[in-house]
Design a protein around this nucleic acid. Structure first.
Length: 418
RNA sequence: GGAGAGAUGGCUGAGUGGUCGAAAGCGCUCCCCUGCUAAGGGAGUAUACGUUAAGAGCGUAUCCAGGGUUCGAAUCCCUGUCUCUCCGCCA
């Protein structure tokens, strides 16, 4: 099995704890083995005589005493069982997913393996500008004003840049709906704790979430994955329901706690960004193929936009806790002279489904099985805007519009042409 | 935000402390009957989990959720959630 470097210490602690508490105890002491059955049976057995005596006006005290005692024992057994079950549940919920066999070894992003590469970075006669200097020209991309009304890591877009973002969004949605067969969905952008547990953001990774403090807290979604996947919470699907392929445009909100000093310039790392998300629910035997297909669907956007990119197979140490296997798509950014993540396509297998209780049956009376869930950005719109600006700039700081995007910009071929 | 009414099985809808996993109807499944037929009769029919070769049997849980009262809760009490009606407000 591939090693996950980060959580391994907690894994060891957890396993030792479980083993000590449950495995090594004798069967009769295993708190997870319910022992209230005899109590319950006796209790119900006493009930009818009790009622009969009461009806007949006979003395019920002796029976009552027995029944009462049994009830006390029963309660005690239940408490012991519930505590053990909850403790076990807490441990299980904190464990990360098991990496797929094809996940490479590695402790951080340097261990990721390039799977393929598409397109070639353009040669620039003079140094390429980054999106900030391109965008701030004419005041169409304004970080300062955003910071005055909110704080840093927010942006305001105007004019052609605001339109470009809308055009990109529309283009992505249309492509996934019309060419890749996804159903467009619209969902809440604030969700409760249960929804976040269902997709694995909680309990362990709440630091990166914006919380709205109500009597019952709500959280701004860090990705549409949360509400979209939760559409199938507690559902039992039939084979005729598959494949479930959904696409959703939404804003995403991330506190970016712990990323101080990283990507502080520009739109790469923002508290609020637009994203078009792909989500699939499939039977287990189809998830591997679905993962490849979903990744290709995200890649198709980059190809249509003529943006050079590479596909990375994340190593165990860089894998998200809920994911079993993840391909990152990294787009070429001339302004940074490097590839940067623009999409993350993951196969969660049954990890989320177990938390969501999203299941299916092969036949009407068959036992329900957990589905497999997958998702990927198709794409992160903000970063796509950055990529278009930086890759399609000319020496005047003007942007030529990729062919695929022109219908969405009223036929315009150039942006920022002042 | 104010006032009120609700939440029961696939659906409708009874049930105000024990014999209730829960009447009845509809729907559905199977069987039977029948030339007046867009009909009749009978039987069956909640779900999940565990156990199991098993869709058999048995066990456990579930009448919105969580707590409480009680020997015992669909039923009584508290809290929450959601739905509906009226008013207010609002995109």
């Amino acid at each position: 099995m591939t090693c996950r470097c980060l959580p391994i210490s907690s894994l060891v602690v957890s396993l030792c704890w479980m083993s000590r508490r449950f495995r090594n105890s004798r069967p009769s002491e295993n708190p997870l083995k319910p022992r209230w059955k005899p109590c319950r049976q006796n209790e119900t057995a006493f009930r009818k005589p009790l009622v009969r005596r009461r009806r007949n006006g006979e003395d019920t005290a002796p029976i009552m005493a027995t029944v009462s005692d049994l009830g006390t024992q029963l309660d005690h057994q239940k408490v012991v069982f519930d505590e053990a079950a909850q403790a076990l549940q807490a441990v299980l919920m904190s464990l990360p997913n098991i990496p797929d066999d094809t996940v490479p070894e590695g402790r951080d992003e340097t261990g990721n393996v390039e799977v393929r590469r598409w397109g070639a970075p353009r040669d620039f006669d003079i140094a390429a500008q980054d999106h900030v200097s391109l965008g701030e020209r004419g005041g169409l991309m304004d970080f300062d004003v955003a910071a005055t009304m909110a704080q840093s890591r927010f942006v305001a877009l105007k004019g052609e840049l605001a339109q470009l973002q809308r055009a990109l969004t529309q283009f992505m949605l249309d492509t996934h709906v019309n060419e890749h067969g996804y159903q467009e969905v619209y969902v809440p952008f604030l969700v409760n704790e249960e929804a976040l547990k269902g997709t694995g953001q909680l309990p362990k990774f709440g630091d990166d979430l914006f919380r709205v403090d109500l009597e019952r807290p709500l959280y701004l979604i860090p990705t549409a994955e949360v509400p979209v996947t939760n559409l199938y919470r507690d559902r039992i699907l039939g084979m005729h329901d598959f494949p479930i392929k959904m696409v959703c445009h939404s804003p995403s909100f991330r506190s970016e706690a712990g990323s101080y000093g990283r990507d502080t310039r520009g739109m790469i790392r923002q508290h609020q960004f637009e994203k078009v998300e792909l989500v699939q629910l499939v039977p287990p035997e189809e998830s591997e193929a679905a993962h490849e297909a979903l990744t290709r669907h995200a890649e198709a956007i980059l190809q249509k936009l003529e943006l050079p990119y590479r596909v990375m197979n994340l190593c165990g140490g860089d894998l998200g806790a809920a994911s079993s296997k993840t391909y990152d798509l990294e787009v070429w950014l001339p302004g940074q002279n490097q590839y940067r993540e623009i999409s993350s396509c993951s196969n969660f297998k049954d990890f989320q489904a177990r938390r969501l209780q999203a299941r299916y049956r092969i036949e009407t009376n068959a036992k329900p099985e957990l589905v497999h869930t997958l998702n990927g950005s198709g794409l992160a719109v903000g970063r796509t805007l950055v990529a278009v600006l930086e890759n399609f700039q000319d020496d005047q700081g003007q942007i030529s519009v990729p062919d695929a995007l022109r219908p969405y910009l009223g036929g315009k071929t150039r942006l920022l042409a002042h």
